[in-house]
Amino acid sequence: MSKKHITTRINGEDVEFLAEPGASLLAALRDELGLTGSKEGCNNGNCGACNVVFDGALVNACCVLAVEANGVEITTIEGVANGEELHPLQTSFLENAALQCGICTPGFIVAAKALLDKEPDADEARIRHWLAGNLCRCTGYDKIVRAVLDAAADMRRTPA
């Protein structure tokens, strides 16, 4: 099958690439565009390690086809920090030691940011419910939830 020409906007920059219909958005990000921050965990929509924001919606990039991205605005983990300055969520994950192996971390941070951008006052129950689609096999989640709560409090003190 012929490759399709895709025009998209990723992390604020216009990006064009060619994609086979069978390539996932995750494969295109990692293999075509060098954006290897999004991780392949299950590759089947269960683990959330590949999370990106797709026209404002948190999605699993492994279950979105790259060709679906035509005309879409995407934010990946690479677009979360402001240049060299870490996002409060990234700082909070470091300070709370909310990761061990780190494979799930980009997904958790993208997912948590998607929540806090819309619901800055999200409480612990809301955060736990929201992060149900992100799996971590190391931490037991508690430090992750604390990191998100701390970041939310920090962001409320100093709005971006």
Partner: peptide, 9 residues
């Protein structure tokens, strides 16, 4: 249904 990622798509 599922999780937020599933519900968004």
């Amino acid at each position: 249904i599922g999780d937020p990622q599933i519900r968004h798509k």
